[in-house]
Write a protein that binds this DNA or RNA. Structure first.
Lengths: 144, 144
DNA sequence: CTACTTGCAAACTTTTTGCTTGCGA
DNA sequence: TCGCAAGCAAAAAGTTTGCAAGTAG
């Protein structure tokens, strides 16, 4: 992918006093350039080659920073570590219960349902998350 | 709440060779009788009074058992430990981003959307989870 | 130059596991 | 009695924190 979106995001960060370091750039650009929804550890191993001395703490620090800046989303499931999604456009997720793969499901947000939930519960809702669980195509074939 | 639903659930368990112990019964009946979506530790502290010697491992073992039997659902969020829901009827959740409270939002399942996701992603979907994030009524008032 | 960041290691939290004793059926 | 379950403690896994040294702006 082009570096444009990454540079734009980094620019946004820098305007609020955040510094640009090679590690930070690498983490963000890896996340924004993949649809694999990696764990912190997967990011760590991916970047290890280029940053042999990088520590996991740096990964976590930056993921937290990106999350707070709204550049990245954290996805958690019961039986595993958090996964991170550098795609913040509208979409939901399908999770394979067999191989844990996460696949994007692009779909317009359920705004009507948010309003419904507001009415029913009295909450002021500002976001929602929808995950589907099932078996991916690859794992379906392996069953044969 | 009445113990009927609990007894029914326990009966279902027992028919598959699972024994009824006082701890097991207490954990399940507490979960089925609350809408507070407690963590394992909260369950532990709640039952501590009646079972001073109970260990956390017992809580976890039983929660796992209940989950596998479909009597209980596990809810996970990024920044905290798992929460457990003894209500397995159709509903979604609203999570307060301020006080972390979880409130049920009864709503018929989005079966149409499951089919849509199947078509788009090639998954065979068998369930989904929908969470709304926002501010609950109590926390809205505290802001004033 | 001076904070912000990194790297490192230790600490912490949550959950799981191994093993012995206890107890439900 | 027999085998599942509880209790206990230690281990595992993921994430956070404190601090010294490095570096971006």
């Amino acid at each position: 992918m082009s570096t444009e979106r990454v540079d734009l995001a980094i620019g946004k960060l820098r305007s609020s006093g955040v510094r640009l370091t090679p590690q930070r750039y690498a983490i963000l650009s890896f996340l924004m350039g993949t649809t694999s929804h990696p764990t912190a550890d997967e990011i760590y191993r991916e970047l290890e080659e280029n940053f042999p001395n990088m520590s996991v703490a740096t990964i976590y620090n930056n993921l937290k920073l990106f999350k707070e800046a709204g550049l990245v989303r954290e996805l958690t499931f019961g039986d595993a570590s958090s996964r991170f999604d550098g795609n913040t456009t509208d979409h939901y997720h399908c999770i394979c219960v067999s191989c844990q793969r996460i696949v994007d499901f692009p779909y317009p947000p359920l705004s009507g349902l948010e309003q419904e939930a507001q009415k029913t519960t009295g909450f002021v809702i500002d976001s929602h998350r929808l995950d589907f669980f099932g078996v991916c195509e690859t794992c379906q074939q392996e069953k044969n």
